[in-house]
């Protein structure tokens, strides 16, 4: 109940913000929504299915370019964003088919390379993408519809994750993460589910990439495929808690503050700090902040099998009354 109340208040705040907030607040919130969308998409494949995804920014960038080129051709930015989302999914399908069929680290390597290859294509095919100069778009006169579209995507992804977390599908994804062979043996269609989760997780980054390009009214390879986007998203999900409903949200809020303070002035220090945050979480806090905030261990499943065993050997705290989340 409490969580619903907080969510409701946040939604109302978000709804009135563009009418009362300053330019600065608005730009901060737009950034926030972009990262919420990216973090929740990453959480689907990285948190739930347990596949390390180092190339989400490829979909963001491809979406940004698809959208920018469509808008350049005269389409409305909303149509462009939809097409960009579709382009993300279409790119993810063959990639997932190639890299998720085999277990292990191939996916991580493949997506890591994919982002850099997409960037070099955006730089190299300069007759289409204008290369390093970038594409300049006509600025949108009223930012409010853009703001609400981004907010809707972010909210939609949070609700989707909420729904997924309590569903059979979500449990099947978690089963893939914990032990893929066992999940397979129990009849979970692992390959199909993995590829499905990957494709779904590519739609929002594509769409958001296009919307972000609309917001900036400019896109170049450096912005579209910035490693900063990738790293920040991963750090956000990890810090909040992988494979949880509210973890990414908390991670986004926490990291956005650091981002706002450091990114524009000290980008190297910011990125090094992001690295340290990831390292810290991996070594000492693999379940993220949410496990500290709420000892509601029934709402999420531990990250590692080792911690699952540790959890099983501990007296259960789950006897406390179950709150709605």
């Amino acid at each position: 109940m409490k969580a619903t109340l907080v969510m409701g208040t946040a939604c109302i705040l978000a709804a009135v913000l563009p009418f009362v907030g300053s330019e600065y607040v608005l730009s901060f919130t737009v950034q926030l929504y972009v990262f919420v969308a990216l973090a929740y998409s990453w959480n689907l494949i990285g948190g739930y299915a347990g596949y390390t995804h180092f190339g989400q920014v490829a979909f963001f960038g491809v979406g940004a370019y698809t959208g920018a080129l469509m808008m350049d051709a005269g389409f409305h930015w909303l149509v462009a964003a939809a097409a960009a989302g579709l382009s993300g999914a279409l790119l993810a399908l063959p990639l997932g088919g190639a890299m998720l069929r085999v277990k292990g680290p191939f996916f991580a390597i493949g997506m890591f390379g994919m982002a850099r290859v997409c960037e070099s294509f955006a730089l190299g095919f300069d007759n289409i993408t204008q290369g390093g100069t970038g594409i300049y778009l006509l600025p949108v006169s009223d930012l409010k519809p853009l703001y609400f579209t981004l907010a809707a995507i972010a909210l939609g992804l949070v609700l989707l994750t909420w729904r997924l977390d309590n569903s059979r599908l979500g449990l099947q994804l978690l089963a893939i993460r914990e032990d893929e062979t066992a999940a397979d043996a129990l009849g979970v269609r692992t390959t199909r589910l993995k590829i499905g989760a990957f494709v779904v997780s590519a739609i929002a980054p594509g769409a958001v990439g296009s919307l972000y390009a609309t917001y900036l009214s400019f896109i170049d390879p450096m912005t579209a495929f910035a490693p900063m986007t990738e790293l920040t998203t991963i750090a956000m999900v990890l810090l909040g808690g992988m494979g949880t409903v509210f973890g990414p949200l908390i991670g986004v809020l926490a990291m956005s503050v650091v981002n706002e303070l450091l990114w524009s002035r000290f980008p190297e220090i910011y990125l090094a700090i992001v690295g340290v945050v990831i390292l810290f979480v991996v070594l000492w806090m693999p379940r993220g902040i949410v496990s500290f905030l709420a000892h509601r261990q029934w709402s999420w499943v531990p990250v590692a099998r080792g911690s699952l065993r540790r959890l099983a050997s501990r007296p259960r705290i789950a006897a406390r009354p179950k709150e709605a989340h």
Binding site: G46, I278, V303
Partner: peptide, 24 residues
């Protein structure tokens, strides 16, 4: 010896740290 996702994330983080310290 933990899950592979953890070592992947850790070396990825180390990579970020090394790159940005090198830039500094």
């Amino acid at each position: 010896d933990g899950p592979m996702i953890m070592s992947l994330l850790a070396t990825f983080a180390l990579s970020t740290i090394i790159v940005n310290v090198s830039i500094l």
